[in-house]
Nucleic acid binder design. Structure first.
Lengths: 191, 191
DNA sequence: TTTCGATGTCAACGCTTGTTGGCCTACAGT
DNA sequence: ACTGTAGGCCAACAAGCGTTGACATCGAAA
């Protein structure tokens, strides 16, 4: 039941090459400047193949932006190390897979990409941190605050490339940002 | 000496209308989807006028993205209220002027806009917070961390519009985010 | 060996884009 | 009243875009 398409088609390699090239281009150029022609050239096939396999540019992006945050089970983490765990995980996930960068860049100008970003954080981050924290702030608000810091870090480090943020080592970033996330998850606001 | 162009030209109103329309479009659509034709239509003039007055689309954007953060003199702020002051100021600045949103959206896909964003934070934010904090972290790093949280807040609230971040009131945001900035400016990292 | 669907190429379509140059019009200086 | 210039519009350009359909080729089933 796990594989609905039992035998591999001969075109699977082509499909994969298209996806790989698409992720690269979307991550580097954003949605509108990443052209189907350029993606096809990278994958060494004709632009019309992209249309055949993915229907449209939107369809290609939807396939290329499929992403799993792979968040660990936070219930198994010592409660006072939640922030550290999250920063470390996101940094690793970001540097190892350019899909998130593609989604981030595209979300600025493409409505569909922004919607995907919202779903990603609602379905994966918000549910992962559900149950943490008490008091006046809802779990959703805590997840939103975490998202604001995580995405801001990614935006300044990988998109705008602010020099001081780029220069900091992952360990520096963990040391500084972990307490922020920790407080957003388990702390209280001032006043 | 304050006004180098003593008498107002008759075209100044048109120039201003173009700039206003450009800021709106760049903020709403980003750099590539905001077309000169659409901007000209909003300003009720011919597209060729945009070229005459601003030379090119890049030139128009450069003029439209001119921005002053208008940061207050932080030396005059009680040292333990730096974070609160900054969050409040940025929130007000953001909601009152769409230029920053235009710059933020465009910075994701346009190299020139990203460069402008870097200059903005280097020249205005980094210099405003210069001198705060001691210890192993340089002032530039502290400014970069502040930028990551401020831009992340703007990105999630005004660009991606993550529901929990949009729903929070400005006062809620101040209460939660102020301690973060306070620590980035005057605190120490964990470990 | 023939057949037929899957795989891939080619050329073109209709459209939009930034940009340009020519032309008309109104108004300020004489 | 005349004239020069600044302000504005119109039409068109070359280029690039996503997308389409017709045609070639390969590989496996018959």
């Amino acid at each position: 039941m796990t594989d609905t398409a039992p035998r591999a088609r001969r075109s699977d390699a082509t499909r994969a090459a298209i996806l790989r090239a698409a992720r690269e281009r979307f991550a580097a150029d954003g949605y509108e400047r990443a052209t189907i022609r350029a993606i096809a050239a990278d994958a060494r096939i004709d632009p019309s193949m992209v249309m055949r396999y993915y229907g449209s540019k939107e369809g290609l992006f939807a396939a290329a932006a499929e992403f799993d945050l792979r968040l660990p089970d936070l219930a198994a983490v010592p409660p006072d190390r939640l922030g550290e765990t999250l920063v470390r995980h996101f940094l690793a996930r970001w540097e190892g897979d350019e899909t998130l960068a593609a989604l981030l860049r595209a979300a600025s100008t493409n409505a569909g990409a922004a919607e995907r970003m919202r779903l990603l954080f609602a379905n994966q981050l918000a549910t992962a941190v559900a149950g943490f924290g008490t008091g006046p702030a809802s779990t959703a608000h805590r997840a939103g605050l975490v998202a604001s810091q995580i995405l801001g870090l990614a935006f300044t480090r990988y998109i705008v490339r602010l020099p001081p943020v780029v220069e900091m080592t992952p360990e520096d970033l963990v040391d500084w940002v972990a307490p922020t996330l920790q407080r957003y998850l388990t702390g209280r606001p001032s006043r």
